[in-house]
Computed example of a mutant assay.
Amino acid sequence: MSGQRIPGEVAETARKRLAAAAEDLDSNRVAGLLMELAGQSGVGPVWDEVCVPLLTGQAGRSAPEVAVEHALSEGIRTGLDVLHRSPRAPLPPSGVLLAGAEQEHHCLGLHVLAAALREQRRGALLLGPALPWAALSSAVRRARPHTVIVWSQTPVTGRAYRLVRLGRDFPAVRVFGAGPGWIEELPAPAARLTSLTAAAAVCQLPS
């Protein structure tokens, strides 16, 4: 995950190209452009300087225009999922588990983190959105990760007591909440992540 910033004019041109593809409802073109950009500048800078401003700008669209937002987010997700992926590569043991909180269907941030970790040649087990808490506990027992990151987009799904209970049930596992849905203070043993850089850092194998 490169730390280099994208020049302003380059980022603006990239945003315009992605926006045009989304307006055409061409999520495949969005995915291709995303892969091209991330290959040149790295996942982190492309997400922070191109994707986030674009996605933020989608807020307030009228109902008939929501399809454009969906084309943009779906194209970004598809491009991220293909990026640096080697389907036959085994997941490293004692790794990272990523999942959306129960009833949480918006987990684009986890796809960004998974792509950033693959970029660094580190794997992660991404179990997708809306994973029930019981299923997450079962997955932790089976996969034995050293770190678990649970994404919540809204306070409806960001239930701090659930995350804290998960951390207490698995004291050897580091448990984090990511996304804007965690508005409550997360007492130990859980903790909150506020940026992609911070999330990638905590996914390092603990010493």
Rank of each mutant, 00 (worst) to 15 (best):
I6E: 05
V156F: 02
E36Q: 15
P189H: 09
V148M: 02
V112C: 06
P129E: 12
D81T: 12
T147S: 05
P64C: 10
V148T: 02
A178Q: 01
G32Y: 04
R168W: 00
V164C: 08
E23I: 10
R141T: 14
Q40G: 08
I76W: 02
S137E: 15
R165A: 14
T197H: 06
S62I: 03
I149D: 03
T78M: 15
G60W: 01
A63W: 12
T157G: 00
F176P: 04
A38C: 11
V30D: 09
N28Y: 05
A89P: 00
A22T: 09
R5E: 13
A101S: 11
E119L: 11
L193D: 07
R159V: 13
L54E: 08
E12C: 01
E36A: 15
A21Y: 08
D24N: 15
Q58T: 15
V10D: 09
P129G: 13
R162W: 01
A14T: 05
V46C: 11
L108W: 05
E185T: 15
A14L: 12
V112S: 06
R5T: 14
H84I: 00
V46Y: 06
P132C: 11
R142D: 12
P64D: 09
T13V: 14
L186P: 02
G75T: 10
C203T: 15
R168Q: 13
T78G: 10
E12F: 05
L72C: 03
A190G: 04
R61V: 07
R29V: 13
T157C: 10
A190S: 07
A59H: 05
A178V: 05
A143N: 03
A134Y: 03
G179M: 02
G100C: 09
S27F: 11
S73V: 07
T13F: 08
A59T: 04
V173T: 14
S41W: 15
S62Q: 12
